[in-house]
Simulated scan of single mutants.
Amino acid sequence: MEYGIETRCCHGVTEIVKEHSFGAVSVPIYQTATFAHRGIGESTGHDYTRVSNPTRDELEQTISSLEGALDTVACATGMAAISLVLELFDTGDHLICSEDLYGGSVRVFSAVGERRGLKFTYVNTADAALVEKNIGPDTKALYIETPSNPTMQITDIRAMKALADKYHLLLIVDNTFLSPYFQRPMELGAHIVLHSGTKFLAGHNDTLAGFVCTATEELKERIRYLYKTVGNCLSPFDSYLTLRGIKTLAVRMERQQENAMQIAEWLKKQDKIKQVYYIGLPDHPGYEVNKSQTDGFGSMISFTTDTEETARRILERVNLIVFAESLGGVESLITYPMLQTHSDVPVEVRERLGITECFLRLSVGIEKAEDLIADLRQALE
Score class of each variant (00 low, 15 high):
residue 120 F to K: 03
residue 86 L to M: 13
residue 112 V to F: 03
residue 107 R to P: 00
residue 160 M to C: 15
residue 96 I to G: 05
residue 88 L to N: 06
residue 111 A to M: 14
residue 170 L to T: 09
residue 88 L to Q: 05
residue 98 S to G: 11
residue 170 L to M: 11
residue 116 R to N: 10
residue 92 G to L: 07
residue 154 I to P: 04
residue 153 Q to M: 13
residue 164 A to C: 09
residue 103 G to S: 02
residue 145 E to Y: 09
residue 144 I to F: 05
residue 172 I to E: 10
residue 171 L to C: 05
residue 95 L to G: 01
residue 137 P to H: 13
residue 132 E to Q: 11
residue 157 I to E: 00
residue 109 F to E: 08
residue 152 M to C: 14
residue 89 F to V: 07
residue 169 L to N: 03
residue 149 N to D: 15
residue 89 F to D: 01
residue 141 A to S: 03
residue 135 I to W: 06
residue 134 N to I: 05
residue 90 D to C: 10
residue 124 N to F: 11
residue 100 D to W: 02
residue 146 T to D: 03
residue 97 C to Y: 04
residue 91 T to D: 14
residue 165 D to Y: 02
residue 111 A to V: 09
residue 157 I to A: 07
residue 159 A to K: 08
residue 116 R to Q: 07
residue 171 L to K: 10
residue 127 D to R: 05
residue 153 Q to R: 13
residue 132 E to F: 00
residue 150 P to G: 05
residue 171 L to A: 02
residue 148 S to G: 09
residue 147 P to L: 01
residue 171 L to M: 08
residue 146 T to G: 05
residue 89 F to G: 06
residue 110 S to M: 09
residue 127 D to Q: 07
residue 107 R to A: 12
residue 112 V to Q: 12
residue 140 K to C: 07
residue 136 G to K: 10
residue 87 E to G: 15
residue 160 M to G: 13
residue 123 V to P: 05
residue 146 T to P: 06
residue 170 L to D: 02
residue 148 S to F: 00
residue 163 L to S: 05
residue 142 L to Y: 07
residue 142 L to G: 08
residue 105 S to K: 11
residue 133 K to Q: 15
